[in-house]
């Protein structure tokens, strides 16, 4: 084995041609209001978990929308389902239902948690 001193970097690009974008439809079936999300971040700003951990609900929702599931299930476990996010949403998105159903959809997709 040759010693190179470096590895070929992996692309960071979100590739919409290969990502599983259809999984989002399964969330929409259960929470149609998710479509309306503008990614304003009010939910994250008011989030109790966000104040103490890196949990970012807006970003979790976006990553799922983009078909990026790595580490998502673990992130969602940080939510305490208090529902404050739902109160502040300007577009009436049922954020709490998104969290609840994302867990189910991710589990249905048989998306394995990444073992560290």
């Amino acid at each position: 084995m040759k010693h190179w001193g470096f590895k070929i970097s992996k692309p960071r690009v979100l590739d919409f041609d290969t990502a599983n974008l259809d999984a989002y439809n399964r969330l929409i079936e259960k929470v149609p209001s998710a479509h309306r999300c503008l990614m304003c971040g009010a939910c994250t700003a008011t989030c109790t978990a966000n104040l103490h951990t890196e949990f970012n609900f807006r970003n979790c929702h976006l990553m799922f929308r983009r078909g990026q599931f790595d580490g998502l299930a673990e992130e969602l476990d940080k939510c305490m389902l208090c529902g404050k996010c739902k109160l502040v949403c300007p577009r009436g998105v049922n954020t709490r239902a998104i969290i609840y159903n994302l867990r189910i959809v991710l589990s249905d997709l048989n998306y394995k948690k990444i073992e560290s």
Binding site: R12, L14, D15, F16, D17, M39, N59, L62
Partner: peptide, 12 residues
């Protein structure tokens, strides 16, 4: 760039 996720993106 998908600026909301701060990641470059491409699609066909």
């Amino acid at each position: 760039e998908d600026t909301l996720s701060a990641l470059p993106m491409k699609m066909t």
